[in-house]
């Protein structure tokens, strides 16, 4: 199977230099007659010509990617509180945990195989999936009642040993007329209207600590990551774009979709933060403002370079565990 994949890559790799050669190349290597059936089963863009000395051609099959959200060893759940959070070892209640993913690829060695997402309202479109671990109970005040811990799709072949995906809404989908969008954008509750966009990932723990008046709780420690420093509005013909894109790239080895799950540990997100205090005159927690002193340790753990908004390593909050 690896041999076959390598063969497929060669002519297409050449295309990076010779952009128009691909179709010629493909037509120079027509599939043998009688192969129509297997071709129909192949993933888009993959020529199904069998190779000598290979086994049966790989087929496209369904794949389910299982996610789990935790705070340390305990499951993330609205209504629960957790001890030992952050540098002050705070006790905190679950507040929010939702994120979009796109550009999902399964890994087989160094090979990356795109996962074609199912269209599955309200959680998935062909381009985008929403993972949602809050159910709007307890202190999860900004959420939605529905939850989703799975991404469904299809992929060519088997035998995967890793996964990569990007967190957030792709830029070309992020700033369109909100009335128009298919699932999972409407109803996600992650609209970030001041940027005409969406929050890529929202994690929130609410410290139980009281303010100095002994009555009010300290504000929630929001962690809202989205693209900032945006310009261009489609409403007046502009092309929207944001200088700080802030879309983490997760890359995990040892992931077999049939045997593994992807774990997000919110406790790890706060290992460099004191969620009991917030710098005056700044947003509680971090809402991606380049001037917010609460943001750098959060961004580091989201796998983002705070200054450039570019991915910087796979976020430490994600890991792979057996299902």
């Amino acid at each position: 199977m690896k041999v076959r994949s390598a063969f497929l890559l060669v002519p297409c790799a050449a295309l990076i230099t010779f952009a128009y050669a691909c179709s010629d190349s493909a037509s120079n290597n027509p599939p043998p007659a009688g192969d129509a059936g297997s071709k129909a089963d192949a993933a888009p863009g993959v020529d199904a010509a069998p190779l000598p000395d290979s086994g049966p051609p790989p087929t496209v099959g369904p794949v389910e990617l299982k996610f789990e959200a935790r705070v340390g060893a305990e499951p993330f759940a609205c209504g629960k509180t957790y001890a030992g959070i952050g540098t002050s070892s705070a006790t905190a209640a679950a507040g929010d945990l939702r994120f979009f993913i796109h550009d999902v690829k399964l890994l087989r060695g160094t090979e990356e195989v795109p996962v074609t997402l199912d269209t599955r309202a309200p959680w998935q479109s062909a381009r985008l999936a929403l993972l949602d671990f809050e159910d709007k109970t307890g202190e999860c005040e900004f959420g939605t009642s529905g939850t989703n811990d799975i991404v469904k799709g299809s992929v060519l072949g088997t035998g995967f040993d890793g996964i990569t995906f990007k967190i957030g809404v792709p830029e070309d989908l992020n700033h369109l007329n909100k009335d128009l969008q298919p699932a999972p954008l409407p109803g996600s509750g992650l609209n970030w209207d001041w940027t005409n966009g969406y929050i890529h990932i929202a994690v929130q723990l609410n410290s139980m600590k009281l303010e100095s008046d002994g009555v009010a709780r300290v504000p929630p420690f929001y962690s809202h990551v989205g693209s900032t420093q945006c310009s261009g509005d489609p409403a007046d013909g502009g092309t929207p774009g944001c200088a700080l894109k802030n879309r983490p790239t997760v890359r995990l080895s040892g992931f077999d979709p049939t045997k593994s799950k992807i774990v997000l540990d919110a406790k790890k997100l706060y290992e460099g933060s004191n969620i009991d205090v917030n710098t005056p005159d700044t947003i509680p927690g971090c809402m991606s403002s380049p001037s917010d002193p609460e943001c750098p340790p959060i961004f580091t753990r989201f796998g983002l370079d705070f200054a450039t908004g570019l991915p910087k390593g796979s976020p430490v909050i994600f890991s792979v565990e057996p299902r």
Binding site: L15, I16, S23, S25, D172, P182
Partner: peptide, 30 residues
């Protein structure tokens, strides 16, 4: 390489390089 190959070599829709700016090509439910 994989992305470019899929996008360029296929008659079918590209997985990685969706058309801009519309959302209709790859998202069915408008």
């Amino acid at each position: 390489v994989v992305a470019a190959g899929l996008g360029a070599c296929s008659d079918g829709p590209s997985v990685d390089v969706p058309p801009r700016p519309s959302v209709d090509a790859s998202d069915a439910t408008v």
